[in-house]
Design a binder for these strands. Structure first.
Length: 215
DNA sequence: ACATTAAGTGATT
DNA sequence: AATCACTTAATGT
């Protein structure tokens, strides 16, 4: 995890995208937040006061049902910001999703009032925001595709692939139960599919740990 | 040694 | 693909 001053971190992440003026503005109004893995940072219904920039780590964004059922929608990674908070500016004031840190993460919280202000002020900001909305929308389509057209086995492979990408590790510390919850499936179904993937040589299994080999 | 939690399995819908 | 009921295996106290 980064331990440098904010200015340098922003420089590292956004220098190629943003002008020095915008970087400076971000540094002035942004508030740095360190989040521990597993920490819930947004619940459905909560008002959105900030747009979070992911400087380091990864955030998992989920849809949540009242009775506790969840579904993983997508991950936010370094350099990303949340589409929910962008749409917030256009009228929706409350979150429709739950967000939880997948790993220890570093966020820059920018009050949402600057979102609109900077769109007029900084052309590169406008381009970045529009691009973010596009990327998130693409991701949404991908999620819908997987729900509508893929069977459980394909969904599970996509899940494991995404998790490997986001964590940067091929050793995933997770249980069949947790995977089932993320995918809104049942543990038994996941266990059977995991066993199949193992027999095909895609993964190695241990207690509380999955080793992804051929993805 | 015992309790708890994770993972495997057959049968049924 | 989900659920039930049960077994087996791994881990912590």
């Amino acid at each position: 995890m980064e331990n440098k001053p904010l200015g340098e971190i922003l420089e590292d992440r956004f220098a190629y995208l943003f002008s020095p003026e915008l970087l400076y503005a971000l540094e002035q109004v942004g508030e740095l937040r360190r989040i521990k893995a597993g920490q819930v940072i947004m619940e459905p219904g909560n008002p959105l006061a900030f747009m979070p920039f992911i400087l380091d780590g990864a955030i998992k964004v989920m849809r949540e049902e009242k009775n506790g059922h969840e579904l993983l929608l997508y991950y936010l990674e370094s350099g990303d910001t949340c589409a929910m908070s962008l749409i917030c500016c256009m009228g929706v004031k409350k979150s429709k999703v739950k967000a939880e840190a997948e790993e220890d993460s570093l966020l820059l919280m920018v009050p949402i009032k600057y979102l609109e202000e900077w769109i007029c002020k900084f052309p590169e900001w406008r381009a970045y925001i529009f691009d973010m909305v596009r990327v998130r929308l693409d991701e949404f389509i991908e999620t819908i595709d997987s729900l509508a057209f893929m069977n459980m086995e394909e969904r599970l492979m996509k899940y494991l692939r995404d998790k490997v990408r986001v964590t940067g590790k091929t050793e995933l510390e997770t249980t069949h139960q947790e995977i089932a919850e993320d995918m809104n499936s049942s543990r038994v179904v996941i266990s059977r599919l995991m066993k199949k993937l193992e027999s095909e040589g895609h993964i190695h299994q241990h207690r509380n740990r999955v080793e992804v080999v051929t993805f």
